[in-house]
Design a protein around this nucleic acid. Sequence first.
DNA 1: TTCAAAATGTTGCAATTGCAACACAATTGT
DNA 2: ACAATTGTGTTGCAATTGCAACATTTTGAA
Lengths: 212, 212
Amino acid sequence: MVNLFHNISEKNQEKLLKLLEANTLFFKKNTTILSMITEDNVIGIVLSGYIQIVRNDDFGNRTIIEELEENSIFGTLFSSISDSEYDIVTKEDTKLIIIEYERIIKSVQIHNVFYTQFIQNLLQILSDKINEKNERIKILTKKTIRNKLLEYFKIVSKKNGSRNIYLPFSFTELADYLAIDRCAMSRELKNLKEEGFITIKNKKITLLYSIL
Amino acid sequence: MVNLFHNISEKNQEKLLKLLEANTLFFKKNTTILSMITEDNVIGIVLSGYIQIVRNDDFGNRTIIEELEENSIFGTLFSSISDSEYDIVTKEDTKLIIIEYERIIKSVQIHNVFYTQFIQNLLQILSDKINEKNERIKILTKKTIRNKLLEYFKIVSKKNGSRNIYLPFSFTELADYLAIDRCAMSRELKNLKEEGFITIKNKKITLLYSIL
DNA sequence: TTCAAAATGTTGCAATTGCAACACAATTGT
DNA sequence: ACAATTGTGTTGCAATTGCAACATTTTGAA
């Protein structure tokens, strides 16, 4: 996966960050950082750590909107996070860079090699993000829990080129991600095991059928 | 909603299209045009007409992935449409422009005023697209048909600043969009009417409660 | 205009699902 | 090391949903 500094030398990264008037911020684990970044239209880049964008609706249903690992970016412009229902929460100690979107736009007129590369990377990342959303939608539009699970397995499995899937989060969070009841999911996973579709060991799920 | 030529004069649009080696194509209504555009990484811009990106899964469930009106863009890069499950279908006679993504990337080094504006527009459009996807996900993660409908109404209503919603497509397609059974949706709409939440006249739905 | 195809409305029924209420295991902070 | 929090597995039950089958209306093309 491309990151914002892909193909930009360390030196040029520094120049770039100066040009864009970037701010570096640190956050402790389990901090809600929304307040810091809604003031303006900004882009955040996760340098290290792990962040989740979650939504808690009126009746306590929690949904993971997005997971942000190292090199992920997020932004008020393309994440509708200014909505009060959303939280941005660090799940580990996190270091990130904040850049005002205006600075990016205005700098398009400035012509450095590294700036050109930066824009290319940004386009690529936004495109990747759209693809991620499409995958999520593809899963969510399946009508049964079983088909949601199988679609999820299929996508992850294809991506990694392996029938082994290592869950990047807890089963509770998986249920949130698939927008299904955790208990019902647990039941269905049991069925899938008993019917010989999968095996589960801790967070490692192995598909016993051809992925197609 | 911003389009790719926002703030670019007609003259400069022409120059831009030459620079990007854009091709103009025409399609009759109800044509599947996927074959034309999967050869390479391209961006398509709808000049006039109306297109849907739909997915037909293994067991005949149809889902509308995206609707493309005038000025919408789509692309192999950010729509995962190279997957064989997807179809791009014109719903009206449609005129569109195809630009190879490589041309866009390579042209970042070329510095015209209108090119700068073009990149700004592209970033804005991709951001908007991500927001659209997030909205869709927000709806799909609601657990009941009723809540999916209400969330959909809320979003459209907010967007238009009115309690009147004019369905941009048929009820059948709405059910596809919400990934629910059409009959079950019809039943729930009836309930909502009887309980005094909404009125329906043709494709005009009026909310009788405060949107909040 | 006419007529076939598509969209809409309705309803019974079986299957799936969410919810609640547990017990137990694992993880985390102090 | 221990207590407290969080995650996991299980199950009965009621509610929701998908599906099928049908009648009726609307749409669109010849």
